[in-house]
Design a protein around this nucleic acid. Structure first.
Length: 510
RNA sequence: CGGGGAGUGGCGCAGUCUGGUAGCGCAUCUGGUUUGGGACCAGAGGGCCGCGGGUUCGAAUCCUGUCUCCCCGACCA
């Protein structure tokens, strides 16, 4: 019987496990403000890694970073009808610009300082960026125009969960304008592929890229594509989206250009984003009953060195420290994933055993402990976080030679990254079912983690689609996306019996 | 936003029904004994009992309002 670091276990209480992991791994905590969280150093460090790696890819694609205001005039939202419908219900509105005392020791918004036009806290920036694009774009020579911003956004969610759905979250939103549909679609697909590769690479999180059905589209979009990841409870998590917005936002904001023939045309625009929700995905894909297993590429520290200082013999402790420092210098030299290895020498005053378990819970990929005996033998004790236990349930500690280990550490990190990815990939594929003849029966079974169903369908619209959505809802199911690289349809629609045109993934979702 | 549950030292909880000196485990600090895999013994420190109002001689406990969190639902790029 293994004594795990977390009290809640995935198999018994997935939601409780998720929350305990976030607390124990020091990723985030409650803030006292509904739906808003404090992201702590280890959690924010993961986000910074995500930002750094993705920002480089965004720039490489010729997209420039900008910053647009947090406050958006209310009237901007009234211009695009579908967009209004999509976001009106969840917007934070600023109506005053001054506080005054009410005479009883409390502060209230000053009735005399009411804003002429309320400002909304951005839930997304299509409208304000569209207004800027309208100023910036004159001719076809200005196109394509591609900008991105890293920002926070606010959506007044009814039910929140840390990282997965918070009222305020951090994200990246790319916005582009093009002369024609082909250019915009190409950009939308480029962003989708960037997200797919990013999830599979740095996050070691396998995903399925595909198009969202009509009812799941972004408000105002012509087409919405997503990457969907499978959590360890079999639920889907939409981990990134990319939208082709047609010309409706350009029409609403007046983004026009003069074409080669001298005529005025509306631009075709796109938007695409990923958020701190990715961290929730990483937790639910890679976490285990001892905490997070952080993929090395996004781990703020990849290797932790814990010196076993016994505070009895100063010379002995100094020797251990010197040895540990030398090891740190040695480990930081090689490149893993094309970057210097990130090594932390944990010299804090905490007990060594506490340090070890704290790094286990945080999911540091490699944890090294060094004691006097290691110094004498030129060795070290290594715990590989993704494979912590031996078959007998004991910690799988290895004792390699120091110099040999230093030479192999970078490769070991890459190996851990690959192992996490392949473990998750095997789980994803073995839980997508293509032979389901009766959805109700399949999902009504008392199977805890039924996974997803991939069904052929005719892609109906309107009332026919609504009926399917209702039918699925009764089983707590949603359509996730129509995978881009699914096999071609060769049968009839599971729902309507009409000739199928594509395949669609169905599952429970966050 | 509807239904249910909860908020008490850093963490996990008991105490609330039946009002009467705020407790336990872990963690922390000190001393001692240990020392290669989540040490042991002894002692100590730490609490506007979420917040406001009320009832009472007296409130963690009863009443009331409110905030926050969790679960189910509705909603949801």
């Amino acid at each position: 019987m293994i004594k795990h670091a977390l009290n809640a276990h995935r198999a018994d209480d997935f939601a409780g496990w998720y929350q305990e992991l976030i607390a124990q791994a020091d990723l985030a905590e409650e803030s006292g403000v509904r739906g808003c969280m404090v992201i702590k150093p280890w959690g924010y460090g993961i986000w910074e890694r995500i930002q750094k790696l993705m920002d480089a890819q965004i720039k490489a694609a010729g997209v420039d970073n900008c910053y647009f205001p947090l406050f958006i005039p209310l009237s901007f939202f009234e211009k695009e009808a579908d967009h209004v419908d999509g976001f009106a219900k969840e917007m934070a509105v600023v109506t005053h610009h001054r506080l005054v005392s009410d005479g009883e020791g409390r502060l209230i918004p000053d009735p005399a300082a009411k804003l002429e036009e309320p400002l909304v806290v951005r839930p997304t920036s299509e409208t304000v960026i569209g207004a800027a694009m309208a100023r910036w774009v004159q001719s076809w020579r200005n196109l394509p125009l591609k900008v991105n911003q890293w920002a926070n956004v606010v959506r007044w969610e009814m039910r929140t969960r840390m990282f997965l759905r918070t009222s305020e979250f951090l994200w990246q939103e790319g916005h582009t304008a093009h002369t024609d549909e082909a250019g915009a679609m190409a950009e939308m697909l480029r962003a989708l592929e960037m997200y797919r590769a990013f999830a599979e690479g740095p996050l070691a999180m396998p995903v399925i890229a595909g198009e969202k059905p009509e009812n799941e589209r972004f408000p105002g979009a012509v087409a919405t594509y997503s990457i969907e990841a499978m959590m360890q409870d079999g639920k889907a998590l939409q981990a990134g989206t990319s939208h082709y917005l047609g010309t409706s936002f350009a029409e609403a904001a007046g983004i026009k250009y003069q074409d080669k023939d001298g005529g005025q045309q509306h631009c075709h625009t796109t938007s695409w984003g990923v958020s701190t929700r990715l961290i929730g995905g990483v937790i639910m894909v890679h976490g285990d009953d001892d905490g997070l297993r952080c993929p090395p590429q996004i781990a703020p520290h990849q290797i932790i060195i814990i010196p076993m200082l016994r505070e009895k013999d100063a010379d002995e402790d100094q020797a251990v420290l010197d040895y540990a420092k030398a090891l740190k210098a040695q480990l930081a030299r090689p490149l893993a994933f094309g970057e210097p290895v990130r090594v932390l020498l944990d010299v804090g005053a905490e007990k060594a055993s506490n340090k070890r378990w704290s790094w286990v819970k945080k999911g540091a990929p490699i944890i090294i402990e060094i004691g006097p005996r290691d110094v004498a033998e030129g060795k070290l004790a290594v715990i590989r976080r993704d494979q912590m236990y031996k078959d007998d349930g004991k910690l799988a500690v290895t004792f390699p030679e120091k110099n040999a280990f230093a030479g192999e550490a970078a490769a070991l990190l890459e190996n851990i990254q690959a192992a996490l990815h392949s473990e998750a990939t095997a789980r994803l594929h073995s839980n997508i079912h293509r032979d389901i003849s009766d959805l109700e029966e399949f999902y009504a079974e008392n199977r805890k983690y039924p996974g997803w169903a991939e069904m052929q369908w005719a892609r109906p619209t309107g009332a026919a689609l609504d009926k399917i959505v209702e039918q699925l809802k009764a089983l707590k199911l949603t359509m996730r996306n129509a995978p881009i690289d699914a096999a071609a349809a060769d049968g009839v629609c599971f729902f309507t019996g009409a000739p199928a045109v594509e395949r669609i993934l169905i599952g429970r979702a966050y």
